[in-house]
Amino acid sequence: MEHADWGTIYPYLVWILVAIIGLGIALASAGKKLHIRRLPAIDAIEEAVGRATEMGRPMMFVPGLAGVDVPTFQAIAIAGHVARLAARYRSRIIMPVTDTVILTMAEQVLREAYAEGGAPDAFNPEDIRFLSGDQFAFASGVVGLMNRERVAANFFFGSFAAESLILAETGQALGAIQIAGTPSTLQIPFFIAACDFTVIGEEYYAVTAYLTREPILLGSVWGQDVCRILLASLIFATTMAQKFLPPVVLKFLGL
């Protein structure tokens, strides 16, 4: 692995972004009131859980294909929230995983979520299933489970690849209500086409803040938004400079 090149702007930029996000967290901790806009896809989670309960059928939560990484951690955090709602109605969640480290994490998070939701006995560890580490073996396993268990709601959160449409279209054919969220840009169009609700891009990382409304998490989302505005302004300014400034000035600015 290489080390950061401090002769370029990039390491400084990353630490400036980290400092801004940290500032957001600090401001929120100090009591600054922050607002987060509505995310209809996340509002629909309760509706999906309620519908599955009414139909007396289980739900499925797929935390993506990746192993231990930030999108999967985020997916497991969302799974915890869905499980707390499911525990309230004593509903069942099936969670197939493709990574054995995630299997142990998911089992622990869902067990605690069911306990917090007031129904520890409704949690069945066998519903957290390791299917396969192979992409398409996992996809066929999930499709088989969906069909056999006749799931009423599907949640696809995490990093996905080509199997995303296979999973979402099978759920669509079964008539399940489907909510997806992924930072994998290539899979977003597939989820939009096949799911009822989709969270895209940066919304994916704001879900836990939206669900919990914890000031600290809202502060980090505020910090991220400031970073995006800063970076977009920087891109716009440098593009305009390249277009309109004379070469001598550009050379002086290092552009």
Binding site: L17, V70, Q224
Partner: peptide
């Protein structure tokens, strides 16, 4: 998403 990932 990249900035969101950094925050997460």
């Amino acid at each position: 998403a990249a900035v969101g990932g950094l925050g997460a």
